[in-house]
């Protein structure tokens, strides 16, 4: 520590929050004025784990390294992983989701679509042909509604009619590209009509 320097060091810019996908590298940059004989240290705020001081990496995390381009710009590199927000694109869990389904006319079915990812993906249902989805409650007193998209893991189709036959798309998205979708075909069988 140099006492000879008249100036005290100052941060010239705040440290920017980062958001990176799993597996990507992250670099934090610390910009300082008049560093003089002082040293830049990096501490992980939640665990207070010392990462590095000056040019020395203290942590035994092999993915952490430091560099500096000049006396004003000091970098902390984290290889292969994010830090604040580790985001994971959505992935549909096929074994927990519905496959093509056959239902008798007038029956009630549930189409299920589960996905993993971070942040937690939300599920949107659409009909592939662009037709509206008919939402009815089990209770006949509640009027039905028609929607182009429906949000939720489970799409309950009450008293299905032959017009609801077709391919339904479940789309899992969480803001991290790419969004993924699954096609589920609903076949409605009915008595022969003359």
């Amino acid at each position: 520590v140099s006492v000879a320097d008249a100036y005290q060091p100052e941060f010239s810019e705040p440290i920017v929050n980062l958001s990176v996908a799993v597996g990507r590298d992250a670099t934090f940059r610390c910009l300082v004025h008049h560093l003089g004989g002082y040293r830049v240290g990096w501490v992980k705020a939640d665990t207070k784990a010392i990462q590095a001081i000056h040019e020395h990496v203290i942590t035994h995390n092999p993915r952490v390294s430091v560099s500096h381009t000049d006396h004003s710009t000091w970098n902390l590199h984290i290889r292969g992983m994010g830090y604040l927000d580790v985001v994971v694109p959505p992935d549909i869990l096929n074994e927990e989701s519905s496959s093509d389904i056959m239902a008798p006319e007038g029956g009630t079915i549930k189409l299920v679509c589960k996905a993993k990812g971070y942040p937690r993906p939300h599920i949107t249902w659409k009909r592939e042909d662009g037709q509206e989805i008919i939402i009815k409650e089990g209770n006949t007193m509640v009027p039905k509604s028609k929607v182009i998209t429906y949000q939720g893991d489970t799409l309950k189709l009450v008293k299905v009619s032959r017009s609801e036959m077709g391919t339904y798309l479940c789309i899992a998205s969480n803001g991290v590209p790419p969004s993924v979708s699954k096609r589920i075909t609903l076949n409605v069988h009915f008595h022969p009509v003359i």
Binding site: V1, Y38, G41, V43, A45, I50, I53, I58
Partner: peptide
């Protein structure tokens, strides 16, 4: 490495035998 940290302000005091605080 053994380091000492002051919790009040998460101030790094020492790292090994190196004194970090001024």
């Amino acid at each position: 490495t053994v380091s000492w940290i002051r919790h009040r302000d998460i101030h790094i005091l020492t790292v090994g035998s190196y004194t970090y605080t001024s």
